[in-house]
């Protein structure tokens, strides 16, 4: 059932109901009440620190340094998280793998949000034939289960993109492929939500007003309507990061994920699951980090969902 898994649940629609407190204050009040969400934020910050600050203690060369005499060493003072099949230090790898995994999560989310919002906004705002065409396409994408589509797409693109150099780091082309592929297979839910919001919002007075003063279509879409539909977009985007990280792990598990030399938490798990018994540190650490990250993001997403729910907002205090 992992094929159908994703944030398909329709999200609550935030309309512009107001209360004496400002929206931001209200959201924060509600968010604070969701203790797990607050804990999630803290853990996420720690995880980001882990993979950013950690890079000051290790170089990427060290993360990729193999030493066959040191393979399968359990955690020790020298290698606090142990070493892997070819003697690479797992601590250093989880740090650099973390950067990539988080980056994949974020970039895939950005792709997803951009495509989803754009298609949803255009379809909802213009309506008519354009709407029908775009929604047919969205439906077509929706009808293909995500994991198989991910597999087909990553296979197709796998040899098309060479390694790239970014920020002084070398990324295997497969990182770009995975980001694109995950992003391009998970925007459909968001597009539908955005479209639905646009459909209802475009008839509202403030839009008519904007039109009267001669605002351009782009300005109405991005400056007037979009801000009013941010709540579901934010929630969806948050959960999108978690989904992208998990999807990367699945695709890596099935052997078409990010390829060496780049480490990710997902591809560290790829071979490691074979040693679930004999060398548990191989899978506990990257696996634990994935679970922790996804878990925190999901908590934050859940907190945001509760906090941004307009009905709940009115209810507060």
């Amino acid at each position: 059932m992992e094929t159908s898994f994703g944030p398909t649940a329709p999200l609550a629609i935030a309309d512009a109901e107001r209360s004496p407190l400002s929206l931001g204050q209200l959201v924060w009040l509600r968010f604070k009440r969701h203790k797990m969400a607050v804990i999630g934020v803290v853990i996420l910050i720690l995880l980001i620190l882990y993979s950013v600050v950690g890079a000051f203690f290790f170089t990427e060369a060290e993360a990729n340094h193999t030493d066959l005499t040191l393979k399968f060493k359990p955690p020790s003072s020298e290698h606090p998280l142990g070493t892997d099949v070819i003697g690479r230090d797992i601590l250093a790898r989880t740090i650099f793998g973390g950067q990539i995994s988080l980056m994949i999560g974020l970039s895939a989310m950005i792709v997803q949000v951009m495509v989803g919002v754009l298609i949803g906004a255009i379809a909802g705002y213009y309506g008519g034939l354009l709407d029908s065409i775009l929604m047919r396409f969205t439906e077509a994408m929706f009808n293909i289960p995500q994991l198989p589509l991910l597999l087909v797409l990553s296979k197709m693109l796998s040899d098309k993109i060479p390694s790239v150099n970014l920020f002084g780091r070398e990324f295997s082309g497969s990182v770009v492929v995975i980001v694109a592929v995950i992003g391009l297979t998970s925007w459909m839910g968001l597009a539908r939500i955005v479209r639905a919001n646009f459909l209802s919002l475009r008839e509202q007075d403030f839009v008519t007003a904007a039109k009267c003063i001669g605002a351009s279509n782009a300005s109405i879409i991005f400056e007037h309507i979009l801000p009013n539909t941010m709540a579901p977009v934010i929630v969806n985007a948050t959960l999108g990061v978690a989904n992208a990280i998990i999807n990367e792990a699945y695709v890596s598990f099935l052997g078409v994920g990010v390829m060496p030399p780049t480490a990710t938490w997902g591809n560290m798990l790829n071979g490691a699951y074979k040693y679930i018994e004999s060398a548990p540190w191989l899978w506990i650490f990257p696996g634990g980090l994935i679970v922790l990250t996804v878990l925190s993001i999901n908590f934050v997403g859940d907190g945001l969902r509760d906090a941004l729910d307009p009905r709940a907002l009115v209810e507060t205090e």
């Binding site: 998990i246 792990a249 699951y273 679930i276 696996g287 679970v291 996804v294 878990l295």
Partner: peptide, 29 residues
């Protein structure tokens, strides 16, 4: 909160993790 946390942990796990762990536990060990 407990149920939520528990379900979130499940939701956040890649399935191969649970599948292999349970196989090693219930079938091998």
């Amino acid at each position: 909160q407990v149920v939520t946390a528990g379900s979130f942990i499940g939701y956040s796990m890649p399935i191969f993790f649970i599948a292999l762990a349970s196989m090693y536990l219930f079938a091998v060990n």
